[in-house]
Simulated scan of single mutants.
Amino acid sequence: MKKKIIIIIFLLLSIIAILNYRVPFFHEIGGAWSIGYNFSKKFPNKIEIEKNKIYSVEDLKKISDSTQFLADPFFIKEKDSFYIFFEHKKIKKHPAEIGLLTSKDGEKYSYKGTVLKQKFHLSYPQVFKYKNNFYMLPESQGANNVILYKANKFPYEWTIEDTLIANIKLKDPTIFLSDTLNVIAATDSNTNLFIYTSKSLNSKWELHKKPIAMIGTEARPGGRFFRDSKGLILPIQNSKLGYGSGLSLYRFQFKNNVYSYEKIKNLFLSKNKSFKEFNYGMHHLDLQKVDDRYYYVYDGNRLETNSKKFNIKRSIKANFYDLKNWTLQTILK
């Protein structure tokens, strides 16, 4: 009997150790978010944060003193100007809005205020140009719909153009449009990354025949689809150390209505102790080719306190979803 008890205790302690190793019971607490950015002559295999410029929450507070944070930056270059759209939290109890920074050279930015405000929370303002019109696909899960906006007078005056996916709360919908492929990747509250496809931007968006791509601690988009010489890459948030703690890169391949993916860069972005703005973690990247160079913007947040928060429920849940994801991918293979 004593031997059985020892074995059971050993197994329980082993399970607890594994759970804690994968997703720690104690995790750091993140605070305010800021934005970093820079140019690169070639496709950046590594983001050298120490060489880049930062537009911090303090920079914005000098202009908008009620600012809580700025996050989820997406940029677009139009004619001779750069535009960064970002999630802007001004007042704690009010929903976040979409703010705008502009620049002539991509190095020195000016704050232009709020460009989109709704009764519900807005974030993740993916702005893109499609058939000579400017659109924004933000996170709008507070409206229980994935809502597309159109600029009547770019970069201002955004109005609802269409509801692409109705009656579902989806986080960080990320869109890719081309002549041969139209895809939206988005995640629900149970960390299921869904894949939707359509014939065009305004056609009916439907779940792919393999609707769930992944589940768990790496299953939420963290920026625009972008291309390298081998195809499409999607940034995916890593939340093992807490929300917003890291970002990995996955390559997606779509062919004949079938898709596959593989992780190509684990923790491409993560905390950097050398910078207070990013000493907790990073969770977003927008990388595009501009003229003959690459340009990228990203975000990160700082430690709110030196203490840590205990949350065993989060660890058990995250590990369960990761095990579910591993099982799903193993069966599919």
Rank of each mutant, 00 (worst) to 15 (best):
P221V: 09
G222A: 13
G222P: 02
G222C: 03
G223C: 04
G223K: 12
G223D: 09
F226W: 06
F226L: 03
S229R: 10
G231E: 07
L232K: 09
L234C: 03
P235D: 04
Q237M: 09
Q237C: 03
N238G: 08
K240E: 15
L241N: 08
G244C: 07
S245V: 03
L247H: 11
Y250M: 00
R251G: 01
Q253G: 01
K255Y: 08
V258E: 10
V258A: 10
V258Q: 12
K263Y: 14
I264R: 02
K265L: 03
L267Q: 04
N272H: 10
N272G: 07
K273Y: 04
F275N: 14
E277W: 03
E277K: 14
F278W: 11
F278M: 09
Y280L: 11
Y280D: 03
G281K: 13
G281P: 11
M282P: 04
H283I: 02
L285I: 10
L287I: 11
Q288F: 13
K289S: 02
K289M: 09
D292K: 15
R293D: 00
Y294D: 04
Y295E: 03
Y295S: 06
Y296D: 00
Y298V: 00
G300M: 05
G300S: 11
R302G: 15
E304G: 10
T305H: 05
T305V: 02
T305Q: 08
K309Q: 05
S315G: 06
I316Y: 01
A318Q: 09
Y321P: 06
Y321L: 15
Y321C: 06
Y321W: 10
D322W: 02
T327Y: 05
T327M: 04
T327W: 10
T327I: 08
T327G: 02
Q329I: 08
I331A: 05
I331Y: 13
I331C: 00
I331P: 00
L332E: 08
L332G: 00
